[in-house]
Write a protein that binds this DNA or RNA. Sequence first.
DNA 1: CATGAATGAGCATTCATTCAT
DNA 2: TATGAATGAATGCTCATTCAT
Lengths: 201, 201, 201, 201
Amino acid sequence: MVNTRTAAPTSRTDVASKTARRVADAAVSVVAREGFDLLSVRSVAREAGVSGGAVQHHFATRADLLLAAFAQTVESISARLAATELDGKVHEVLHRLCEQALPLDEERRREAIVWVTLSAAAASHPDLAAAHRRGLVAFTDLVADIIDSSHRGGEVPESVDPRAAAAVLVAVVDGLTLQGIVEESTDLDAVLRAALTAVLR
Amino acid sequence: MVNTRTAAPTSRTDVASKTARRVADAAVSVVAREGFDLLSVRSVAREAGVSGGAVQHHFATRADLLLAAFAQTVESISARLAATELDGKVHEVLHRLCEQALPLDEERRREAIVWVTLSAAAASHPDLAAAHRRGLVAFTDLVADIIDSSHRGGEVPESVDPRAAAAVLVAVVDGLTLQGIVEESTDLDAVLRAALTAVLR
Amino acid sequence: MVNTRTAAPTSRTDVASKTARRVADAAVSVVAREGFDLLSVRSVAREAGVSGGAVQHHFATRADLLLAAFAQTVESISARLAATELDGKVHEVLHRLCEQALPLDEERRREAIVWVTLSAAAASHPDLAAAHRRGLVAFTDLVADIIDSSHRGGEVPESVDPRAAAAVLVAVVDGLTLQGIVEESTDLDAVLRAALTAVLR
Amino acid sequence: MVNTRTAAPTSRTDVASKTARRVADAAVSVVAREGFDLLSVRSVAREAGVSGGAVQHHFATRADLLLAAFAQTVESISARLAATELDGKVHEVLHRLCEQALPLDEERRREAIVWVTLSAAAASHPDLAAAHRRGLVAFTDLVADIIDSSHRGGEVPESVDPRAAAAVLVAVVDGLTLQGIVEESTDLDAVLRAALTAVLR
DNA sequence: CATGAATGAGCATTCATTCAT
DNA sequence: TATGAATGAATGCTCATTCAT
């Protein structure tokens, strides 16, 4: 999101070399596919098709690698949220928005797994918490803003507190994300719709 | 819960030897305190105060150890839910119930971390998914039953579908769990109350 | 051979318990099927269908187990040699005899593998050399005796030295054994016949 | 032999780094001196005077290490055979040749032990069989060629089939190798001479 | 005789990291 | 920038062995 919107044709540090980007992508893939504990300098190097030394050239430690994978995932989800069409009825807009974060296709599933993994890891590795918070706040703010705006159109009763409602909705999305990555058959959409109905009333 | 019901008050070998139990407990502690990837046969042995060989005598592989830690956590949370007082107003009962699963004190925080970690790991290790599902289903069923019962008392409008409402509430609890283990300052209780109000209306 | 010939109906130590026998057999099977280095107290226990402790009850150390496997194999081959019909033309008798030691069916193949393995191991574990020597001497003596006897019948020229010829024949059998266990397709019989023809002339 | 012919006098990286060669040599030494089952990544590293990691850098698994030790031994024996002087009387030439493979000094004894060990191991690890076959075929072909050539000089009667005679001789050499590594006192030379006499007649 | 718990040492293997190129 | 060699410290796991039952 940051990059795509701010990028001059070829800004200086931009993507910190194409290789670095490729390596970070590979890290995301490894975490999503094989799990947190199988992420290693070696496995990422293999996935990215570069030498082990090359990975270390860009990310000195395994922790750096993890952080990069997480940051990139958060950024990627945020970008998708920011790109969502905001015109239309609140209910539909919020539905469209929340869907962006749920594991409803392969790409979103990859990101969802990394997101939950990040949360679990952040509990014991506080250095990761900042990336988590950034994503959480961005999402909550966006939802609250939308609800707030809808007050003016009379679409949502004044009795609905934007921040409280946003917090509930974001919790639902996080909960469904957590459930969805484990149980692929869960009907995430149905629960999301029920939550929207309950919250916006 | 399972054990206490199926066994005589104090059966002889009880839960597969005292050491096995102690080791599984230690595994939970290690995951909660140091994270998923620092759980090793050795770290658990150290935590449990037994030899590495003893750990392996009871849990042949690291995967077995993980599964045991997860199963024990799920069982522990379920036991706390099952022990919750169910008399009173629905709103309060459900509040009391959901609180049991949120990271509101050290013990629940430990369990919450393991729960989220389990979910993340289950995404790439399907053998763990069963433990997750067991916990999820038990919780959802309990919540749905409570809402269903409250229909008869007229406490909750008939328009509220027990299973749908339960799904939303459980998602909120899972989401708050995920957020709560990362960000200790989050006001989980407020969001839970808001969700209850919205859902039971 | 020793046991079958010397056995009183039920001598005292005889087979040192049925379990011991079964364990030694299992050891032979493991070496033959999975190789020397996969023989362990555990693998043998698994193969024999008894507990690890039971194996150790009869064979205190892994070395004992190896020795037992080897001794039993040597004894088994010797028994087969001793049971061979010795009437007929020298050429045919010796052919019949040598065949007993070659890996021409599954049982003999098992024994052959153990025999070669024993030889290789004996090179660095002199404790095993005695078992090897016992088998080698028994075989050589038998062959030499047969050739010697045939001198009296004029079947074999006096110029053929029984012990020298026996040594060559036994070497051929050992060499074919070594080749036969690796390369199942080798025509061991043809080479054996060629050797007999050359040596008895 | 292979290397020296295919490379420029002193190519840059030569035989896959000097360390790799040193490690493979060390592996041969360990197998010869301490036996198959005491070959470990660690023991080889100690013998070669490098770190355990260095060994694994060049030979990823223990199996690779074994294969390298075996291949190197086969190559080494083949090189010695190929370097043998082929002029002179058949009997003497073949005697000289066969001697190269028998454990008549320390170096040949080392190689002989590895050769027999290889054969035993190849019975249960078919990946090793190729190395065995390579050595066996090279030796047999060489012997058969020599006998064939001697037909033209009338030195050996036409009735002697080169391939059959070669097979018998090679079997004798293999058998004597097997016996010689166990029983150092065996008079290998006498048996070899007797075999040559019998076969070339 | 036999079992299963427990120990501690050993194994192959993978790892993060450093360094020379 | 990137590679590959090398290190040394983990890791999971198997092992022989001891001991109480």
